[in-house]
């Protein structure tokens, strides 16, 4: 799943100073960028498996329309990674199939 990223840094791009965890692996992010962008910079592989057939998908539209970038962020499942800014220490999991129910409140 950890194919090389399909993107490279533009000239003069800011350093990736934030550290996120993706399924236990550190992922670096730039302040101000979305979680989806950080995941795309990290790897060219799938970031979720669909609940219908288990097919691999990665962030697609980057503007909140397609819902292909769903991941679990800090325990919240099915979050649109393209609509959330990366923050230091975020814990992210690839969304594998349908989500689970939350714990008993």
């Amino acid at each position: 799943m950890n194919a090389a990223s399909r993107f490279r840094d533009a000239p003069g791009a800011a350093p990736r100073s934030l550290r996120l965890m993706l399924d236990g692996v550190p992922v670096l992010a730039r302040p101000g960028e979305s979680v989806a962008a950080a995941l795309l910079a990290h790897s060219g592989g799938a970031t979720r498996q669909t609940p219908v057939t288990g097919a691999g998908r990665a962030p697609y539209c980057m503007m909140g329309v397609c819902f292909d970038c769903l991941v679990t962020i800090d325990g919240h499942p099915n979050v649109q990674a393209c609509m959330v800014s990366a923050r230091e220490g975020m814990v992210i999991q690839r969304q594998i199939g349908a989500r689970r129910l939350g714990d008993q409140p």
Binding site: N78, R99, L101
Partner: peptide, 14 residues
Amino acid sequence: AQRGELMITERVAD
């Protein structure tokens, strides 16, 4: 006519 309203959520594995 009598209106009924409904909602559907995202899929859940459990």
